[in-house]
Amino acid sequence: MDVTLTVNGAQHDLRLDDPRVSLLDALRQHLDLNGTKKGCDHGQCGACTVIVNGRRINSCLSLAVMHDGDEITTIEGIGTPDDLAPMQRAFIRHDGFQCGYCTPGQIVSATAMLEELRQGWPSQLSDDLKNPELTDEEIRERMSGNICRCSCYPNIVDAIRETAEGAA
């Protein structure tokens, strides 16, 4: 089964013998992109968050074969140690991580989240469903799909707010 994935701008032609390979395992085991983490493998933690065709999703709950032709951004595409993105630098400055395992998912998720907010998408906290603002509560709700057991949530919120304000 041939699958073409464009990951972080580079095209990868994968030959998959087994359709059971999740997008997450394709990235980690077949493309050696280990930045995307496996925390639960069931869409319950968000550690595997990647951006597919502009949308953040749980890569564990998708088959690689379903993404033939898709464009995927992983944490490796957000920024490298020598060339970090503003969100990554803000996570370091605000200590938005401890063990670091959920961190790539948090950062990818936050990056896509700000774009969702820019497009005016509502959340369950947006009472009138219109013109949601970047309040701390909105950030918390929109980031609740990314579990952090070290519990850096307040620092994560600070990092995201600062990044968003910096970009505004």
Partner: peptide, 8 residues
């Protein structure tokens, strides 16, 4: 930090 935030 740079390694953890970049997935490396």
């Amino acid at each position: 930090g740079p390694l953890k935030v970049s997935g490396t």
